[in-house]
């Protein structure tokens, strides 16, 4: 940072964009304070509402633009759930659709300059991942009883190896929510921070064309990442759900 001040005016703080600030009020963040995080979270809800409810309000047999998008999203997630979890998984389709719509809308809204991205915070992704983890684990035990533990007992492996494998499976099972949440938040955070770093470099005349090109390229990548991370989160949820429904290895 010494170098930066020497160059004059080049100061950037890539993490400032993730600050949670109360909108109005005295700056104290209570659990119910309406912060920028709350604002953009509610924007995500609004977008889901506009897309899936207002967009389909005509119930047209020949769909318009919004309705096509809504139907695409529906078909996309429905097919994913059905392909991975089978027919029994379709019951849980609304929950998975909820996760997907929230994440994808929050991700894309976060790409608007000066926006706040709820999904870049572990405070959001860890509850989401824990929700999936706990839900799936409880569901597995409720559906299969003790035979759910067969998930960790690799019956196709030699008997001598099974305890070791069981330990590894157990660890990897409990690492699931960790990687599940950190993947999403980390990807989103990384992209936004890198864009911010490029934006900081854009203040230097010499490198600014490169920096602006970099911002453009990163932005394109981020659009892709926003969707892919939502997709990956959803598909992993489906995979975990499949494990709970059919624990046999």
């Amino acid at each position: 940072m010494a170098a930066q001040s020497a160059e004059g005016g080049l100061s950037f703080d890539p993490m400032a964009q993730f600050q949670v600030k109360p909108l109005g009020g005295d700056g104290v963040v209570n659990w119910f304070t309406f912060t920028n995080a709350a604002l953009w979270t509610s924007f995500a809800v609004a977008v889901v509402f506009i897309l899936l409810v207002v967009g389909t309000s005509k119930r047209a047999v020949v769909p318009g633009r919004m309705q096509s998008v809504a139907e695409l999203a529906y078909g996309f997630i429905y097919k994913m759930v059905e392909d991975i979890c089978g027919k029994e998984g379709v019951k849980y389709f609304p929950y998975i659709m909820t996760l997907f719509m929230f994440i994808v809308c929050a991700n894309f809204l976060g790409l608007i300059p000066t926006a706040f991205t709820p999904t870049s915070h572990f405070a959001v992704t860890i509850p989401l991942a824990l929700l999936v983890f706990l839900g799936v684990t409880i569901l597995g035990f409720v559906k299969n009883g003790a035979s759910f533990l067969g998930l960790f007992w690799v019956s196709s492996a030699p008997l001598a190896l099974r305890p070791a494998l069981a330990l590894i499976e157990l660890i990897s099972y409990f690492v699931r929510p960790v990687s599940h949440s950190i993947r999403l938040a980390g990807n989103v955070m990384a992209g936004h921070a890198v864009i911010k770093v490029f934006a900081g470099f854009a203040a230097l005349t010499i490198v600014s064309p490169v920096a602006i090109l970099g911002i453009t390229a990163m932005y394109g990548l981020e659009v892709l990442v926003s969707f892919i991370q939502a997709y990956v989160f959803t598909i992993l949820t489906c995979v975990y759900l499949k494990d709970a429904l059919h624990p046999s290895h």
């Binding site: 990687s179 950190i182 993947r183 980390g186 990384a190 892919i228 990956v232 598909i235 992993l236």
Partner: peptide
């Protein structure tokens, strides 16, 4: 995508 996600998670 699952494979890419697992590989990328470690980088993250």
């Amino acid at each position: 995508f699952i494979g890419i996600a697992f590989a990328e998670a470690l980088g993250i």
